[in-house]
Amino acid sequence: MMRLSWFNVVSLTLGFAFLYIPMIILVIFSFNESKLVTVWAGFSTKWYGELLQNEAFLSAAWVTLKVAVMSSTLATVLGTMAAHVLVRGGRFMGRTLFSGMIYAPLVMPEVITGLSLLLLFIGIGLDRGVMTVVLAHTTFSMCYVSVVVSSRLVTFDRSLEEAALDLGCSPLDAFRLVTLPIIAPAVISGWLLAFTLSLDDLVIASFTTGPSATTLPIKIFSAVRLGVSPEINALSTLMIGIVTVGVISASLISKQNLIRQRKEERQAVRAQ
């Protein structure tokens, strides 16, 4: 084992300080009494109270949640299918184009994706609102899902599936009973990724939404443009809190699963 040098310790400390101090300051000042966000005037939770009474933010949060749930679920189904095609599809016409279309949205600037989708929606005369944002979010997040799922499918032992087919499963049952449980962790993390991407997106939603559907990032962006406000700090703190709890519990669960899986494997080996 290599030892950490003082240089490693310093760079890790400074690096993580850089990553976390801005967010910590944000969280601390969400509990500030004063409206001036840079001057501390005593502890208060009043901004959280005001936030919960702000109809505009609440309805935007509801729209965002709806969009995120719908688009991430659709994206997970489509992305898993796409991953299957990429890894197992064999040869078919336009395969290169297909894999190109999977990877391109990952690096496409959001302004271009947003602009092009808006022009499409106008071109085919689709009314812009929740539905168009869902379509837009599904399109780019299915690509992330398919990358995550295909990396799991590549290492998947195909003979398990073949055994199920030999034993009389229909292909759909073999997928449902054998493949899906094995790739489930990747599918779930794909869903989570798609969900977060959708919650987080400002640019593509701004292009593809209509006046009836303002998402939370759009709302935050227009408020933040006017400057720093304690209410936004409170909202940010809530969002950071939810994400932190989510990520930590997800990693704890996956760690436990890994331990259990190793234990079962050892037992299986012993039983033989």
Binding site: P22, M23, V224, S236, I240, V247
Partner: peptide, 10 residues
């Protein structure tokens, strides 16, 4: 995983 917008806002 934390909102991009919030990290810029910070």
């Amino acid at each position: 995983w934390t909102s991009f917008l919030i990290r810029v806002y910070a």
